[in-house]
Amino acid sequence: WIARINAAVRAYGLNYSTFINGLKKAGIELDRKILADMAVRDPQAFEQVVNKVKEALQV
């Protein structure tokens, strides 16, 4: 799951650890299995999560 998430978030200019930190700051409580599945099956929803994380990180 970690490898999938890392590959997906790198397309948005983040790395895995920064993304996970941003999830916590944004108050998003999705587990890694769901995030990895979302990255593959629903990229639009995953992009929305990434955008919320970037807002929380102020990137």
Rank of each mutant, 00 (worst) to 15 (best):
W1H: 14
W1L: 15
I2T: 01
I2K: 10
I2F: 12
I2V: 07
A3K: 15
R4I: 15
I5F: 05
N6Q: 09
N6K: 15
N6Y: 02
N6H: 03
N6L: 04
A7L: 07
A7Q: 15
A7V: 08
A7T: 12
A8Y: 06
A8F: 02
V9L: 13
V9F: 02
V9H: 00
V9E: 00
V9W: 01
R10Y: 08
R10W: 05
A11D: 07
A11M: 13
A11E: 07
G13Q: 05
L14K: 00
L14T: 01
N15Y: 06
N15R: 06
N15I: 10
Y16W: 03
Y16I: 03
Y16T: 03
Y16A: 09
Y16L: 05
Y16G: 09
S17A: 08
S17V: 08
S17K: 15
S17G: 05
T18E: 05
T18G: 07
F19A: 01
F19V: 01
I20N: 06
N21E: 12
N21S: 13
N21P: 04
G22W: 03
G22T: 04
G22C: 03
G22S: 03
L23A: 05
L23I: 12
K24T: 07
K24F: 12
K25E: 07
K25A: 13
G27S: 08
G27F: 08
I28C: 07
I28F: 08
E29N: 14
E29T: 14
E29D: 13
L30P: 10
L30R: 08
L30C: 13
D31A: 13
D31G: 08
R32N: 15
K33M: 14
K33C: 08
K33D: 06
K33Q: 11
I34T: 13
I34D: 08
I34N: 11
L35V: 05
A36R: 03
A36H: 08
A36T: 03
D37K: 13
M38L: 12
M38I: 09
A39S: 11
V40F: 13
V40M: 09
V40Q: 10
V40Y: 15
R41V: 13
R41Q: 14
R41M: 13
R41P: 02
D42K: 13
P43G: 04
P43N: 04
Q44T: 07
Q44W: 15
Q44D: 12
A45L: 10
F46T: 00
F46I: 02
E47F: 08
Q48V: 13
Q48F: 13
V49E: 02
V49Y: 09
V49G: 01
V49F: 05
V50S: 01
V50H: 01
V50C: 06
K52M: 11
K52F: 09
V53N: 00
K54W: 06
K54F: 11
K54V: 11
K54P: 00
K54N: 06
E55I: 14
E55G: 10
A56E: 09
A56M: 07
A56Q: 08
A56F: 10
L57W: 06
L57R: 04
Q58M: 07
V59C: 09
V59E: 10
V59W: 08
V59G: 09
